[in-house]
Measured scan of single mutants.
Amino acid sequence: TETYKYDDKREAEKAAEEFRRRGITVTVEERNGTWVLESK
């Protein structure tokens, strides 16, 4: 599991889209005002 942090929800979702395009499952969730993207 890799974790990436973003200040902006849009950025996180854009990154998530890129991962999914490569066939990687990711989750995006907000933690304490930071958007956390996790690849499984």
Rank of each mutant, 00 (worst) to 15 (best):
E29Q: 10
V36N: 02
I24C: 14
E11D: 10
V28A: 02
E30V: 07
T1N: 11
T25P: 11
R22M: 11
R10W: 12
T3Q: 11
Y4Q: 08
E2D: 10
G33T: 01
E2M: 14
E30W: 15
E13D: 09
A16L: 06
I24H: 08
T34E: 15
T3K: 11
R10F: 12
K40S: 12
G23I: 00
D8F: 04
N32D: 14
V36I: 12
S39A: 15
A15F: 04
T1F: 14
K9S: 04
R21A: 10
T25K: 11
E11K: 09
K9M: 07
N32M: 04
F19G: 02
E29L: 12
R22I: 08
R20M: 08
E13R: 03
K9R: 12
K9N: 03
E29M: 10
R22F: 05
K40D: 10
I24K: 08
S39Y: 15
L37C: 05
Y6V: 01
R22H: 10
Y6C: 05
F19L: 13
E11W: 04
A12V: 03
T3C: 15
V26D: 00
T1P: 11
Y4N: 07
R21F: 05
A16P: 00
I24N: 06
F19K: 04
W35P: 02
Y6D: 00
K5E: 13
S39H: 13
N32G: 07
T27W: 10
K5Q: 13
A12R: 00
E29T: 14
V36D: 02
T1L: 13
T1Q: 10
G23Y: 02
G33F: 03
A16G: 03
T3S: 10
S39D: 07
Y4I: 11
R20V: 04
Y6F: 13
T34M: 15
K9T: 02
D7K: 14
A16K: 05
A12L: 03
I24Y: 14
R10P: 05
T27E: 06
A15S: 04
S39R: 11
D8P: 00
T3F: 12
K9V: 07
R31A: 05
V28T: 02
T27R: 08
N32L: 04
K40V: 13
S39M: 15
R31H: 09
W35T: 02
T1G: 11
I24E: 05
T27I: 10
D7R: 13
E17R: 07
G33Y: 02
T27H: 09
G33K: 02
A12W: 01
V36R: 02
D7A: 14
R10Q: 13
A16D: 00
T34V: 15
E29S: 12
V26I: 06
G23D: 02
R20S: 08
A12P: 00
K9G: 03
G23E: 01
K14S: 08
T34Y: 15
A16H: 02
K40Q: 12
T34W: 15
E29G: 05
G33C: 04
A12K: 00
E2Y: 08
T27V: 11
G33I: 00
R10T: 10
Y6R: 00
S39C: 15
V28K: 00
A15G: 03
E18F: 07
E38P: 00
K40G: 11
E17W: 05
T34R: 13
Y4H: 11
E30T: 04
T27P: 00
R21K: 12
V28P: 02
T25Y: 14
K9A: 07
F19I: 05
L37Q: 01
V28C: 06
R22A: 07
K9P: 09
Y4C: 14
E29A: 10
R20K: 09
A15Y: 04
K5H: 14
R21S: 10
E11I: 06
Y4V: 08
R22Y: 05
T3P: 09
R20Y: 07
V28M: 09
D7C: 14
E2L: 14
R31T: 06
E29F: 13
K9W: 10
Y4E: 05
A12S: 01
D8I: 04
V26S: 01
D8E: 07
K14T: 08
E38W: 09
E38M: 13
R10N: 12
L37V: 15
G23M: 02
E29D: 06
E38A: 09
N32C: 12
R10L: 12
V36Y: 15
K5Y: 15
K9Y: 11
T27K: 08
E2T: 13
G23Q: 02
E29I: 15
E11F: 03
A16M: 07
E18Q: 08
E17T: 05
R31M: 09
E29V: 15
D8S: 15
Y4R: 10
Y4P: 06
G33W: 01
T34A: 14
V26C: 12
G23A: 01
E13Y: 11
E29Y: 14
Y6E: 01
R22D: 03
D8G: 05
K14E: 10
R10H: 12
T25N: 13
A15D: 04
E18K: 07
Y4S: 06
R10K: 12
D8M: 04
V26W: 01
A12G: 01
E30I: 06
E18T: 05
K14A: 12
W35D: 02
E38K: 08
E38S: 11
K5D: 05
L37E: 01
R21C: 09
E38F: 12
R22N: 07
E13K: 04
T1H: 12
V26K: 02
E2I: 15
T25Q: 14
E30C: 15
I24L: 11
K40N: 10
E11T: 10
T27N: 07
S39P: 13
E30G: 04
